[in-house]
Design a protein around this nucleic acid. Structure first.
Lengths: 342, 342
DNA sequence: CCGAATCCTGAGAGCGCTCTCGGTATCGAA
DNA sequence: TTCGATACCGAGAGCGCTCTCAGGATTCGG
């Protein structure tokens, strides 16, 4: 591996000039720049990012902490973040922070601290005050997806509003007997998503003068099998059956639809179903949904940290930014059957 | 940020001793080690990995190149790789290498080369000879998932054998009219998976003396909607309808099942369906499948590169390793109906 | 035509570590 | 006692860059 010295020699200039020519910082005549570039490519030279980081203090790495990878929402975020980072010349260091406390503390105490990243993007991170403090103490730009999170700029859809929007859609269609299938709030990785979506559901019911009881709500796993199980449970008893279900996520909604189909319950004739996310499978199931774009949220989070990094003194304007979420109507929702129980 | 000097001062020892104490290399008395550790934690000191990398030449980073993130197979690999890397003290740098040639060449020419990673794990990477050469030229340990790939140790299930196993299962049940729904071989990211699974299908048919024609095979997108579309197409015409379908992946198989349900075709009574992967949703759909464990493959790939990194002179024994794949029987396959068309 | 501003380049210090090398202390075997 | 092996520690070189600083060349307005 050839070093900067070799390039300098070959180009007949000094190390300093090579550095300037290749990094684009400082004055270099175009003639010299060409010489240097030629020499560099002839030697297959490429700057050692370690050496350069050592003096500049910049690593050109951004750490991403994420609780799950293998789920549409999270996978999309990673894709968005990666794309945006590479485009700007940064590398992505991935930390999959599960509930596992051992690996967890390891990441916090060991990896993130080692001056390996310039900034951190934390995705739906449910962190303890200690952990938050240690993140902040790094003095590095941080952005969160989810939130709000004390002291950290975050962005997400307005979960309460989205849930209310979904519920209101059902109410507007004429439904009066609506149930909610949400996430299990015992699950760590939720950033209070579950409780907020439940809240929005309750708000909408309340505003419409509809009753809410324990019977109006079922918690389950946040995936298709979870929705399926909940669907089977809810729809099993014909007399209790609601005319509409608001699922807290499209995966859950799809599970509900599958359960309904299996029970011979027609969607939307016998049962309307709405979810949140606008998952790629929503189309296949004709699922009405509240759309959000996690990949875009990832890009925005990158913006947030990179801007802090590159424009001195800039700090994010709001502590929490709400990104848009809109109703996408498909065929899983309609007015309840005329003779439906109320 | 305090440096090693500060710790040395506070502990009353030299920089060299601090380095030894903290890195665990070389002789340090336990008394001294304690002093150093205390001083370090009191100061909140943590070694600069850049400075250390600069002299050791090791970054403790492993680059992972992967074509997709948001799919079960790939997401699981990332999870497995990440877990295994963190456990061993390495960080994961993620490069999502799509077909997009711009970002692609960027990763190859710019990122990977910059001495930022100690090793590379390439997942189902369909690379050009040039790209392969540039990877090898880095002189860094590489492992691939998929393959085989010239000059690079790889690991994967035996796709031909897995496909044959799936097909043989159908044949053994008595099916004679079997179709295959596979991936579109025009898609870049496939490492010839599609053609290999088709091959295994053909092999099995041939061995059983069953005919293969253009009609025996449909290519589609490698996901649930793709399987659904293919299913609709295949199952639409009752007279052409096979008694069994071998789908090249569980997502595709699930799509086929959904299509069948919609057409009122009973699985497995009217149609047997088998896939490959043992996807988490396979259970929900009762899908018989050939199981593989991508997360484990990820861990094995990590093993491969880390061992090369840490045990001098060690090189991977085989150029390509086959990992096991087994039949998992569920309820989507059975003997064909007695009066079924042959 | 002169001084100031601008452009271009090189010498060399130093980023924060690790590692070699040499020196001292300890200890068991000869 | 002597000697070699082993344990422990410090001084200082150097990893491969970037950046400051100083100096020379060039341009330009007055």
């Amino acid at each position: 591996m050839s070093g900067i010295e070799d390039v300098a020699l070959r180009a007949g200039v000094s190390k300093a000039t090579v550095s300037r020519a290749l990094s684009g910082r400082g004055y270099v005549s175009s003639v010299t720049r060409n010489k240097v570039e030629n020499a560099a490519s002839e030697l297959g030279y490429v700057v050692s990012s370690n050496a350069s980081s050592l003096v500049t203090g910049r690593t050109n790495n951004v750490g991403v902490i994420i609780p799950v990878i293998n789920q549409w929402f999270f996978g999309s975020i990673i894709e968005g973040v990666e794309r945006a980072l590479i485009e700007r010349g940064y590398d992505l260091m991935l930390y999959n922070l599960t509930k596992n406390t051992e690996a967890r503390s390891r990441v916090f105490e060991y990896f993130l601290v080692r001056k390996r990243v310039d900034a951190i993007i934390a995705v739906t991170l449910e962190i303890s005050p200690d952990e938050a403090a240690s993140l902040l103490a790094l003095g590095k730009p941080i952005a969160g997806i989810g939130g709000p999170l004390a002291g950290i700029p975050t962005l997400s859809i307005d979960d309460v509003a989205a849930a209310r929007l979904a519920t209101e859609h059902l109410i507007a269609l004429g439904h009066r007997n609506i149930m909610h299938v949400g996430g299990d709030s015992a699950e760590l990785m939720d950033f209070h998503v579950h409780s907020k979506r439940l809240q929005g559901f309750m708000d909408a019911l309340g505003a419409a003068g509809l009753p809410f009881s324990d019977e109006s709500y079922v918690a389950t796993h946040f995936d298709i099998p979870g929705g399926y199980a909940a669907g089977k449970q809810i729809l099993g008893d014909p007399r209790r059956r609601p005319t509409a279900i608001f699922a807290a996520a499209d995966e859950v909604a799809i599970g509900v639809i599958l359960a309904a189909r299996e029970l011979g319950i027609s969607v939307p004739d016998d049962l309307s179903v709405i979810g949140i996310d606008n998952h790629p499978l929503a189309d296949l199931f004709g699922l009405t949904s509240i759309a959000q774009k996690p990949a875009k949220q990832g890009e925005q989070a990158v913006d947030l940290v990179i801007r802090q990094l590159e424009t001195a003194g800039w700090t994010p304007p709001n502590i929490h930014t709400t990104v848009p979420a809109q109703l996408v109507m498909r065929s899983s929702t309609s007015a309840p059957r005329a003779g439906a129980p109320r």
